[in-house]
Amino acid sequence: MQELKAPSTLAQLMPLERVREVAARHALNADQQGVLAAEVVEALTCAGFSRYFVPREQGGHPGTFVELSQRIVAVAKACPSAAWCAIIQAVVGRMAAYLPVAAQQQIWGDSQDVRICASFRSTGKVEAVAQGWRLTGTWHYLSGVDFADWALLCIEVDDGEQRFAAIPAGTWQVLDNWQTLGMRGTGSHSIILDAVVVPTHMTFARTDLMKGGSRHAQGPQYRASPIAADAQLFLACGLGAGWQCLEQWRDSLPSEAVGEVAMAYASAEAALETCGLLLHNSCQAIDQGELSPLQIGRCARDASFAAQLLLDAVNRIFRLSGAQAHFSSNLVQKSWRDVQTLTSHIALRPDFNFIGYTRHALANRP
């Protein structure tokens, strides 16, 4: 792990514009080296992303999804990989609020600025031991793992139940295997564990998270299903990347642009604005608290629909950008690659979200 300076006592007050400046300065290096610079990670922490959903019971001041989505879009315009890691810090911090109080105190007892990464599929070996489980093997694609203080791992226990288990940094080995088309700077490597024992009180049931019902934290932030909430934040990251792509292309266009180029610019801008409206509406609904299955499905549906609009717009921009966009240092190409990778995430896949929404919609016909 890279050495980072401890967050300042005014960590939550770092201006967002300052975070964007730092992220933009290191964006190309993050893409080329496959990891965020330590200065960027510190800026994200000092802007309060890791503490965004720390429960009040642990001294936190949890925020809204509307505000978080706006902040993510802003950072993603500078560096989508930095914005993605900011999402993970916030989202997995929210997940940690589902842990029992004793576990929460162990994680946040000394500071709310704790960086947590996660693996969402049970891929390693899990053995029952006295008052817990022993974990051995490989868990995949933990964004920001190089800078994480803790990790939440999906595990499948003996009876087939899936749980999330919290393990501290120093208990895993990073496997450098994140070589992707886009979102390279997220450093979403796999990890290897060798007989790491997790006590029962450091775990929680995955079903609690999916239903949106923490037993150990109070507030509407902990009654949101990730099927609705996480999809919006991933869309926010993609939307920021889309605006970055459009603005870079716009700066290369002549003021008298006509024909297909003019049509593409106008339609791309309208598509991104439409994505922003769908994003805002869904986040407003999520901030109200517990949603019905139909409302959860609608939020996921709108995220997938917006992601497709975004992907179509960016693909058209890339096609019309000419030979210059085929150089790896070109920001239009970088944004295009990031959007390809980001919109393929399962949380934004239309074949998953459209079918799920339609099932609920038909079941709720008048």
Rank of each mutant, 00 (worst) to 15 (best):
R184S: 08
V40T: 10
A90L: 00
Q244I: 00
F147N: 06
L36R: 00
D159C: 12
L10P: 05
L294I: 15
L209C: 02
R51H: 10
Q179M: 12
I286P: 00
Q33Y: 14
A47R: 10
L342Q: 02
T274F: 12
L4Y: 07
G297F: 10
D208F: 01
L233N: 03
A47N: 11
T203H: 02
K77E: 15
C79T: 03
L348C: 03
D159P: 09
W84T: 03
A165T: 04
W139I: 02
V339C: 12
T45L: 11
R215K: 15
V157F: 05
R349C: 14
P226V: 11
T358D: 13
A11P: 04
G219A: 05
L99A: 04
D113C: 09
Q106V: 11
Q106L: 12
A300G: 07
I155P: 01
Q2T: 13
A151H: 01
D146H: 13
F354T: 07
V129C: 05
G276E: 09
L4F: 09
W249C: 00
D31V: 14
S335Y: 06
A103C: 05
A37Q: 02
N29A: 14
T45S: 15
P80K: 01
I155L: 07
P55R: 06
A347H: 08
S50F: 11
R18F: 14
L10Q: 14
V114T: 04
D110T: 09
S282F: 03
Q218V: 12
I72N: 03
D208R: 00
C299S: 10
Q288S: 14
K5Q: 13
W249S: 01
D159K: 07
R20Q: 15
A43G: 05
